[in-house]
Write a protein that binds this DNA or RNA. Structure first.
Length: 376
RNA sequence: GGUGGAAUGGCCGAGUGGUCAAUGGCAACAGACUGUAAAUCUGUCGACGGGAGUCUACCAUGGUUCAAAUCCAUGUUCCACCA
């Protein structure tokens, strides 16, 4: 279980196409993974997710711990059964909430003392807590409990996060090996280090030394420039083991995905397609569009003529803008549907190009046609 | 026909002598969103000007006052109740 096979590699960039085995099926990489924090990819049913070829989705340990909680999830027989999604699931450890809910907590090496963002009640997050919860969730891929550091952060702060992440990675692994089932669940390590080369390198070495079946790059896409992100990816591309899957956490802006793939990344996840979709911003092959814009009022063309999604096959921009302006639920659904399909299809296109030996051409074409900022 | 009440910026609606180009909300326009405290948040929103500022504005006309969206008179329209 969990063997990762590289099928093709781009000789120019180092981009890879692979297959990752999991108990719920094979994942073809590069892959984009929709985020389903609370046991639902917001606005999408499992049927629809299958329709857009979502191979694997995310769930979140912290949020699911609060609601519905361990009791109901274990009664349900795990997250797959609970939400009726039978393809692979990756669960985030709650480490990101150490970053995003930082105001509500006190962090020590021992644990994170946290106040629930829902009712203010106290809870303790730790590597052991996270592994236990992820065991109950029964995800195919579990993540180490890490500390994601804010940006910008001083070298000192970033180093603290690197040290703690290494300490917690070891504790995550030890607890996981003793209590979880490595045949049914893989535990991935997470590399931190902010934008500091020495810290990235050290973090990578420390995490890789613990020998995980896959490695994630955390602490990026938190506000740093694209150049800084790409620089860190270049550095890590030379350090991370080639025979293990690599997961760039939190990245979903289309150009970032393509650039990430070119730097040897296999897996991506991001709330951007779903959140921006609900907020009426869509991505196309040529850029980004705010669908509330008056310029679409009389436009009876599809969102993206190259897209094969349900939204693009059936609805005009004029109608979609109308849904956005009236705040109709269908608008949120159709925009999410499109954004997810588009993001997933970019990973698919890149994979096809790698296998066909024309990834550099694909990337060149993508970069030339996708305009940063708004479309055209 | 009588009595009482009301008329404010695209809409709703505060304001009842100067600090009012006028609170709020909606609509509109624009922007943000990267391991989800987000179907959320931010900005603009009378005209002209880069700005200081100038002009036109709170139903209409006239008046009181240094000063009126605010007070008075008349008119117009609308609402409620009574006949």
């Amino acid at each position: 279980m969990f063997e990762f096979r590289i099928i093709a590699e781009c000789p120019v960039t180092g981009a890879r196409a692979g297959e990752l085995n999991t108990p719920h099926g094979i994942i073809k990489t590069p892959v984009f993974m929709p985020v389903g924090t609370l046991a639902t990819v917001k606005a999408m049913s499992p049927l629809e997710l299958e329709e857009i070829n979502a191979q694997i989705i995310l769930g979140n340990t912290y949020h699911l711990f609060l609601r519905p909680g361990t009791e109901i999830l274990s009664e349900a027989g795990g997250l797959h059964e609970f939400m009726n999604w039978h393809r692979p699931i990756l669960t985030d450890s709650g480490g990101f909430q150490v970053f995003s809910l930082a105001r509500l907590q006190k962090i020590t090496d021992e644990h994170v003392l946290c106040r629930s963002h829902i009712d203010g009640s106290q809870l303790i997050m730790s590597p052991e807590w996270s592994m236990n919860m992820q065991g109950i969730l029964g995800s195919d891929i579990a993540m180490c409990f890490d500390q994601c550091c804010e940006y910008p952060a001083s070298h000192e702060k970033a180093e603290e996060a690197v040290n703690r992440t290494a300490l917690w990675a070891k504790r995550s692994r030890d607890y996981f090996m003793a209590h979880n089932d490595p045949e049914r669940q893989a535990l991935f390590g997470i590399i931190q280090g902010s934008v500091y080369d020495d810290l990235r390198k050290r973090s990578a070495e420390e995490i890789i030394a613990l020998d995980f079946p896959g490695y994630a790059i955390g602490g990026l896409s938190v506000g740093e420039s694209h150049e800084a992100m790409y620089h860190s990816l270049d550095l890590l591309n030379g350090i991370m083991p080639k025979n293990k899957p690599r997961y760039l956490m939190g990245v979903g802006y289309p150009p970032n995905i393509v650039e990430g793939i070119a730097r040897g990344v296999d897996m991506f996840d991001c709330v951007m397609p779903t959140r921006n979709g609900r907020n009426a911003t869509v991505f196309t092959h040529t850029g980004r569009l705010n669908m509330r814009g008056a310029s679409h009022a009389h436009d009876f063309s599809p969102l993206d003529s190259e897209c094969d999604c349900y939204t693009c096959r059936n609805f005009t921009r004029a109608y979609l803008r109308h849904l956005a302006m009236t705040g109709e639920i269908l608008g949120s659904r159709l925009f999410t549907w499109h954004n997810l399909r588009l993001t997933i299809s970019i990973a698919e296109e890149a994979r096809d190009a790698i296998i066909a030996g024309r990834f550099p051409e694909y990337m060149k074409h993508f970069t030339e046609t996708f305009h940063d900022g708004d479309e055209e």
